[in-house]
């Protein structure tokens, strides 16, 4: 059983993936983006260009410390729904994952990085001629 303050790199990565999945399944969430600095994102993009897809790093940031687990994520949201409502759903989803794993929440930092237009084409479909 994990204590909530000690997580191995593999445990953090697994937890990050489960949180990402929970966020993607969340009502109003249309995408999960990389949190972190532009520099680190650029480095990941470079790694991806060299064949290392997604830089082999989780999109969601998870850190474990004395205060518990700190989670940081950036999301895209449905423009028809109030952003703060979607953020609160997302917060609840993260809390649920932490609770299910017996982990103490240290902090949750969620940021809307993109608001999707109300009318969005399916992948592969053009919105306009």
């Amino acid at each position: 059983m994990m204590t909530g303050t000690e997580l191995s790199k593999e445990e953090r990565a697994g937890l990050a993936l489960r949180i990402e999945a929970a966020l993607r399944a969340c009502s109003g969430v249309r995408g999960v983006y990389r949190s972190g600095s532009l520099v680190s994102n650029l480095l990941r993009a470079g790694a991806s260009a060299w064949g290392n897809e997604r830089g082999a790093e989780p999109i969601v940031s998870v850190a474990a410390g004395a205060e518990g687990v700190a989670v940081e994520a950036a999301i895209g949201v449905d423009g028809r729904v109030r952003s703060v409502a979607t953020l609160r759903h997302a917060r609840d989803a993260v809390d649920a994952v932490l609770r299910a794993e017996g982990l103490r929440r240290g902090s949750i930092t969620l940021t809307v990085a993109y608001v999707q237009s109300a009318v969005e084409p399916a992948p592969g479909e053009r919105r306009r001629p």
Binding site: A74, G79, R91, S107, I108, V115
Partner: peptide, 24 residues
């Protein structure tokens, strides 16, 4: 930032996303 009643939860939207909203 968005107002939050929980000090351990920080919810926000980026300025870029807001500018995108305005443009749209």
């Amino acid at each position: 930032p968005f107002a939050s009643d929980d000090p351990d939860v920080d919810l926000a939207i980026t300025e870029g996303a807001v500018r995108g909203l305005v443009r749209a």
